[in-house]
Structures are given as structure tokens and as C-alpha cells.
Design a protein around this nucleic acid. Sequence first.
DNA 1: TAGATTGTTAATCGATTAACAATC
DNA 2: TAGATTGTTAATCGATTAACAATC
Lengths: 208, 208
Amino acid sequence: MKEKPISSAVTKRLPRYFRYLSELKEQGTERISSKELSERMQVTASQIRQDLNNFGGFGQQGYGYNVEHLYSEIGKILGLNRVRKVIIIGAGHIGQALANFQDFKKRGFQICGIFDVKQELVGQMIAGIPVMSMDSVEAFIQEQNIQIAILTLPKEYAYETAVKLMQYGVTGFWNFALVDLKLPGNVVVENVHLEESLMTLAYNLSEG
Amino acid sequence: MKEKPISSAVTKRLPRYFRYLSELKEQGTERISSKELSERMQVTASQIRQDLNNFGGFGQQGYGYNVEHLYSEIGKILGLNRVRKVIIIGAGHIGQALANFQDFKKRGFQICGIFDVKQELVGQMIAGIPVMSMDSVEAFIQEQNIQIAILTLPKEYAYETAVKLMQYGVTGFWNFALVDLKLPGNVVVENVHLEESLMTLAYNLSEG
DNA sequence: TAGATTGTTAATCGATTAACAATC
DNA sequence: TAGATTGTTAATCGATTAACAATC
């Protein structure tokens, strides 16, 4: 049983396939060929077939892919079929916006609490979720069995906080702080570096 | 004069170089070799030298790179040395969070206005910026010479709105709506698809 | 069956890494 | 000068695209 590791070039494209399939499903489209999908998505049909075949043969010669089935398979591959408990660290503007982010539920992410070091924020409700003190985060993670932390705190505190949260049991981070978290051990970090995205925009604008 | 197009693999790494150089500068480091920087950034020294040499020879044999100088050069390449006028379309949670995003100013992005179709939001102040009606966006863009629009509106309206804004004079979009904006003509679109980032996190968590 | 379209192998292309002569 | 480190060419690696036999 040799596990062939799938390149991140491929896995980063999965959510986009998932999105297009979700739209096709809503439109009531029953089947789609790699060629048709490639035209919509502006990629090559070859790439679509190669990508999907990393995970299995979901299509059928002469027919294409069944939209409903492929959608559900990619959902499973992405791990969207399970529920995950999440906390937000930092009740600032971005933390608040994310607490109100409606897509979480749809994707199995359950926001259980928001934490902040600022005592004056504690007790406040954000999107129906109470802001709690960072003092209580350890007990909360362990009692509630929290897996994921969303980091929306100043970059200065991101690393030390992440290390502590790991020790309490967190295994995944959605990191909005502008640092590269080099964490020891087996954790997953997904970065959203807004500032870098903004600079890329600036660069491309400067090109003409 | 043959303009060699620089691959996006390279240009997407520039903001990260910029960030590390900014940190080095703050620490007071005067010079750095590609080898030293490669260790900090966890990339190869070869890649750093290759990347930088797309834009010019910023280093010096036997010495390395002058931090201050390289920082400023990359800033110029990224186009951070000019001021750009920006509006936010959509005064929802993400729009509000971005209005409060402090890094804009630092990078030459000047938020001039926030627009929303909801009349009850009009007149409200967000981060010292007034929310205006979408009815007045055309005149505003033209009078104020707005270049960039940040799209934080429901995906259903993103495309039609973007097309209009283009016609009014906007040349760049920072798009937070979950659609691939295929816009006609010469505009720059930088996407921030939070939902896709979240799915990537889910996928990586599922791997173990 | 004939036509369509997959799954997969082979060819191409581009990006990354290694190596080293040039030079500060 | 000797040592360090660049800029750049060449080698390697990986990802994308093309092609086509298999098959629904």
C-alpha cells in the first residue's frame, strides 16, 4: 500500500472544482464533461482529468462526470462531511467579521467561542457567541474538545499564543496574523495574509 | 527593448521578501546574504537570488544585500511608493473590518468612501469614513478619481457591479466575493476567497 | 455499432535548484 | 590578496498539456 502524496498544486484547486460543481448542481445540470467544465473554469480539460484521477475514477467514458456524485465525492475528499469545533482568538474587527461569516456552518465549522485578552470585551456577544477571557481558554478547549483556532490577533502575540493553544489540544490554525507560524509538531496552518494579497494587487496595477 | 514577462510564481513571493526585509530593517540589520535570508525564510538561497535578479542586481559579491536598499527597491517594484484612492463596496461585516484595516495607509491605499445599497446604512460612519448610497458612486468615482474598489458584497451582485465600476473608471478590484470575475478589458483583479482557504484547511486536517 | 469521453502514458514546458566563474 | 557571495548558466525536478487506447 504505497500512499502517493498529492501535490499541493492539485489540492489547492479542489475547492474551486467544488464551487463550480455546486453551481452546476444548483442549476440542475446532471452531467458534465471535462471539456465543458474546462471551458467554464478556464483551465485545460487535461488538467481536470489529471487532478480528479489523483483521487479516483469518478467519470465514465462517453458520458463525462455525474455532477451530483462528483460534488459529493470532492466534498468528502475535502473533509467537509464532518463537524469541527472552532474558536476565534481575538475579538477585533476581523475576528468579529469572521464570527459573522455564514459559510462556516455550511462547511461543518462550528464556532464555539471567541476569546480576547481585553477584559472590557469579555461578556459581549458577537453573532450570538460570547467573548470570553483568554484566562479560560485552556479549560474551554479541553472541555469542549476544540480542534481549530482562528487567529485574528496582533502578529506580536501570534506565535506564543499558537504554541499554548497547541499544548491545550488545538491541531489546526486559520492564521490571519501576518507572520509565518513555524510550529513544532504535527499541526496544520492555513495562512490568510491579507497584506500580501494587497501588495500583489499593487504590483499588478503598477504593471499596466 | 524586450520586456521579459516575470512569472507570477516570482511576483507572488515579493511581498514575503518585503516583509522579512522590513523586519530585518526594524531589527537594525544592515546587510544580509541570500544564504542567511534563505534560512530565515525557509527557501533556497538560489531561489532568492534568481527572484531578485529578475528585477536587477541588488547585491554585491562578497557582501550580500544591503537591507535598507533592498527593502526600498522591492517597495518600488511593488508600487508601494504611490498613493491610490480606494472605495469599499458593501458595508457588511467584512467591509467594516477592512475599513478599519490599519495597513492600508502604510501601503499607500487611501480609503475614500464606503458604499452600500441598503439605505438604512447610509450616513453611518465606519472608521471615520461615511457610508454612501450606491446611487452616488458614479459621480464619486469620477470626481475623486478613484482607482480601486474593494468588493465585499454578495456574490450575486459582484459581476454586474464590477462592470459598472469599470465603466466609471475603476481599474483594480480587491475581490472578496466568491466568484471568478471575468471582466472585459484591462483591469486587475486580486481575489481573496476565504471559503476556499477554509476548505484547504479542512482538507489538510483530514490528511493527518 | 459508432460516437463520445474517460483514464493514463508520454511529451513538453516552466520553475527550482545546483554549480561556478566573476568580482567585490 | 584571500574569502565571501553574488549573478547567471546549466541540470534537475515537477507540473501541465497532448495524445490515444480503453470503454461506456
